[in-house]
């Protein structure tokens, strides 16, 4: 106790602070007596926040660093091949983007930070500046466009159903009165609710915390089907213990584009990203990357998704649209 008091005497601001009822009151009176310090601090804080959010290229140029987002299990867009080693279709896009970013910012020593993202945190972390770019399995939607921006659409998918062989489910209408697994934080959940209301199906939705969890629900018999974007379902089959046991069925009620996600109102950065993707699409390199991830055996199991390029994506190789689904 005596030691405590002696320590406090050595640093009088501690005693000063204890005189106030709360920390906020102490801060208020501290800055009331030192207005200049307050102004400097305020300018630093506000300026810092703006700088972090407004211009990604400038941020990269000054820090020499870019933070790229990856997903842990979005096969084949972005997933882990080993500890902290993301690979995939989206990661290959990054590989082509880095040289362009080096040119645009004049930083040849550009360093890449990797940040794992989930369905739930990807948008907040892009918006608040923690992550600069995410090329994964993110749908380009009008609702999201209020918070973030999207590059040129680089994949098209629609929700289908993953079921066990012989489950007797052929399409969405067969789900009436059944329990359906769907992952929390995805647009598919809303789509299912809409179908349920429009067609009076009385489905029971089982909200999984991630895709693996939703898959497990069907495997364990808690749900008859896992409704999700078809490409993610093919990815689940790829990693299943017995792939032959599973099938993907149904006609998608709507088709959605996937695109790289970046911060809103950052035209210069978007131009660089779009430029790289457009060049890949024009040169035919994009089709090569597509074939590598969707038509050939891929890690970790050396199996192939066997998913030919959709017409919607083939059209966009020329249209270069960055617009959300209608």
């Amino acid at each position: 106790m005596a030691g405590l008091i002696r320590g406090a005497r050595a640093s009088p601001w501690v005693i000063n602070m204890l005189r106030y009822r709360c920390f906020a009151a102490y801060l208020a009176s501290y800055f009331a007596r030192r207005p200049v310090r307050f102004l400097v601090l305020a300018v630093l804080l506000i300026g810092g926040a703006n700088e972090a959010l407004a211009d990604t290229l400038q941020k990269i140029a000054s820090s020499g660093r870019i933070t790229l987002g990856y997903r842990e299990s979005s096969v084949p867009f972005s997933y882990l091949a080993g500890p902290r080693q993301p690979i995939g279709f989206g990661v290959d896009i990054y590989t082509h983007l880095i040289p362009a970013l080096k040119r645009a910012t004049g930083r040849n020593d550009l360093e890449v930070n990797w940040q794992a993202l989930t369905s739930q945190n990807r948008i907040p972390l892009i918006a608040n500046g923690t992550v600069d770019l995410e090329c994964g399995s993110t749908s380009n939607t009008a609702a999201r466009a209020k918070t973030v921006a999207f590059a040129i659409n680089y994949f098209y998918t629609g929700p289908k159903l993953l079921v066990k062989q012989g489950a007797g489910i052929k399409n969405f209408d067969d789900l009436a009165g059944k329990t359906v697994a769907v992952t929390t934080g995805t647009t598919t959940m809303k789509l299912l609710r809409k179908l349920d209301l429009e067609r009076g199906m009385h489905m029971q939705l089982l909200p999984g915390k991630d895709h693996a969890d939703s898959f497990l629900s069907v495997d364990a018999g808690r749900a008859v089907a896992f409704a999700m974007d078809d490409i993610l379902l093919y990815g689940q089959i790829l990693n299943a213990k017995q792939p032959a046991q599973w099938q993907v069925v149904g006609t998608p009620p709507q088709v959605e584009p996937y695109a790289c996600m970046l911060r809103k109102d950052d035209a210069a950065f978007k131009q660089v990203v779009d430029g790289v993707i457009a060049e890949l699409m024009r040169s035919g390199e994009f089709e090569r990357i597509y074939a590598k991830w969707f038509l050939s055996p891929i890690p970790p199991r050396g199996r192939s998704l066997n998913l030919p390029m959709s017409d919607a994506l083939r059209d966009n190789l020329h249209a270069l649209s960055d617009q959300p689904a209608r």
Partner: peptide, 20 residues
Amino acid sequence: FAVAVAELTQFAMQAQEETA
């Protein structure tokens, strides 16, 4: 939330995604 109960935390995660 971790085992598919549609409680408050699950609502927060899904609704913030749908409504932005």
